[in-house]
Design a binder for these strands. Structure first.
Lengths: 250, 250
DNA sequence: GAGATGTTTCGGCCGCGGCCGAAGCGTTGC
DNA sequence: GCAACGCTTCGGCCGCGGCCGAAACATCTC
C-alpha cells in the first residue's frame, strides 16, 4: 500500500502547467538546455531550474552536462507513453487526439533528427548497413554524447563505427560523394530515442537523408519532423541495402 | 498550444494522494459508493465528495446514482491505461512493476466479478452461449444497472437476455441444477469493463463459475479476483460450448 | 586573470487547494 | 408524517509549493 504515494508523486510532477510544457517540449526526444526550456515555458531561469531538478529527481528526465550547458531529455520512452496516455484522457477535441495519435505513430516510424534519419526506419537502415558490412565496429560502450544526436556533432569523439571499403563503394554508387575532407566525422551514431537502438548520423547520415529526399524515396511532411517513405523508396531500399520494412509504407 | 493545459489538469487530478487512492480503489473496474471510498481513502465524507465531483468533472470517473447511493467507477479503460502508464514511471521496485504488469494482464484475461466470470474469458463464454443458441435476446439498449455488475442484481430489471430451451438442457447436462425458484433473475449480464462487451451474470453466471471451479476447469489465484484456466478447462470449454480461446492458457 | 554566459541556491511572497465541521437536500423506511 | 441515512455545499483554516530576484557557482572566452 505504498505504491499509491509513488504514483501520485509522479502524477503531481506532470500535473503542473509549467512542468507539462517542459515535458511536451521534450516530447519528441530532443535534448534541450535549461535556458531554452525557461524561454519556452515562460518562467525565470531560477524557476525552471527547480522544476528540472524535481523532474530529474522524480525520474522523468535525464540530464547530460555538456560544457557550461546542461541538456535535459525525457528519461525514456515510458515517459512519453505516460504522457500520451494522459493526453488521451484530456477532453479537448477527440478528433485532435486521434490525429495526434497517428502523428505520434508516424513520428515513431520515420522522422528526421536534426539532419539525419531516426525512428524505426533509421534504426532499420543502420541494422542493414551493419549486416551488409557497409559499416563495422560499434564497441558496445556507452557514448554519452551519442544520445544528444547531431546537436553536438562538431564536438563529438570517435563513434566506434567505421565506414568499410565496401561501404564506401556502395554509398558512392548510390550517388553520395565521399571524396574530399568533411567538417565532421563521416560516420556517427545516435541512440534512437523511441527505439533505444542506434541509427546513423554524422556527415554520412546527413548526406543519406539528403539523397533519399532528392530521389523522392522519402518526402518530408508539411510540418514537423515526420518523413514519409514512398513506394519507390520502400522497394529501392530493399534492393539497394536489403532493408526489411514490414508495414513501413505511407 | 492549449493541449498542455488540459494535460496538466488531468495529471493534477491524478497527482493528489487522496484522489490516487480513489482511482486505485476503482482500478479494477468496480463501482463503489462515496461512503466506501471515503472510508478507503481515510478522509471525511465532505472531502471525498469534493474529490469525486472533481474527478467526474475531469472525465476520469462516471457516476451512476442508485437509490440514495451514488456509485462511482472509472470512466473507461483509457483511465486505467493512464494509471498503469504512470505506475510504470514510479521508481519503487522495478520487479514489482513487472509482476504487477502480468497481474494486470491476468486480470484482463479472466477474473471473477463478484460471483461470476468477467474479463476476456467471461466475454468469450457469453459470445459462445449466444452463438450456440443457449441464450438469446439482448435488445441492444443500454441498461445502466448492467454496468454495476451483480452488485445490484437483486434490484435489477429485465436484462434483455433469455435462457432458451436448448440452453436449459445443455446447462442441466453440464451439472447445473436449474430447477426450483431462484432469488434473482437467472440470466443477467454486465458490461465488461475491460472488454466493453457483455458477459454473463445473474444466478446462472454465479452457478457456472461455481461449477467450473468445482470441476477444476478454473482455479482462483491465491489473492485477488484473478482466475486461471486449467488445461482441462481450456479443452473442456471448447468441447462443451465451442469456446474459441486463443492464448488463454495459464 | 577578468568578463561573459549558463545554471543553481536561497529567501521571501503569495495564492491555490486540501481538509474539516456544520448545515442543507434528497431518498428510504417505519 | 418523522427519523435515519447518504451525500453535497459552504465557510474558514492552514500548509504546500510555484514564482521571482539576488547572489553564488561553474564554465568558456579572450
Amino acid at each position: 500500500m505504498e505504491g499509491d504515494a509513488d504514483l501520485s508523486r509522479v502524477a503531481a510532477l506532470v500535473g503542473d502547467p509549467t512542468r507539462t510544457r517542459i515535458l511536451l517540449a521534450l516530447g519528441d526526444g530532443r535534448a534541450l538546455p535549461a535556458g531554452v526550456l525557461a524561454n519556452e515555458a515562460g518562467v525565470a531561469p531560477s524557476t525552471i531550474s527547480q522544476h528540472l531538478s524535481n523532474l530529474v529527481a522524480g525520474g522523468l528526465l535525464r540530464v547530460e552536462p555538456y560544457g557550461r550547458n546542461r541538456y535535459f531529455r525525457l528519461a525514456g520512452p515510458a515517459v512519453a507513453y505516460a504522457l500520451e496516455a494522459l493526453a488521451q484522457l484530456a477532453p479537448a477535441v477527440p478528433v485532435r487526439s486521434l490525429r495526434d495519435g497517428t502523428r505520434a505513430e508516424a513520428l515513431r516510424r520515420a522522422r528526421s533528427c536534426y539532419d539525419h534519419l531516426a525512428g524505426r526506419l533509421g534504426v532499420a537502415l543502420m541494422a542493414a548497413f551493419l549486416k551488409q558490412g557497409l559499416i563495422e565496429g560499434g564497441d558496445g560502450l556507452f557514448h554519452p554524447e551519442a544520445a544528444l544526436c547531431d546537436r553536438l556533432a562538431v564536438a563529438g569523439r570517435d563513434s566506434g563505427y567505421r565506414l568499410t571499403a565496401k561501404g564506401a563503394s556502395v554509398f558512392t554508387g548510390f550517388g553520395i560523394d565521399l571524396a574530399g575532407p568533411h567538417a565532421r566525422p563521416v560516420v556517427r551514431y545516435c541512440v534512437d530515442w523511441t527505439e533505444q537502438q542506434h541509427h546513423l548520423s554524422g556527415w554520412l547520415g546527413a548526406a543519406l537523408l539528403e539523397r533519399l529526399l532528392a530521389m523522392d524515396w522519402l518526402r518530408r511532411a508539411q510540418r514537423g519532423r515526420v518523413v514519409h517513405l514512398t513506394d519507390d523508396g520502400r522497394h529501392g531500399l530493399q534492393r539497394a541495402f536489403g532493408v526489411e520494412l514490414q508495414v513501413m509504407s505511407q
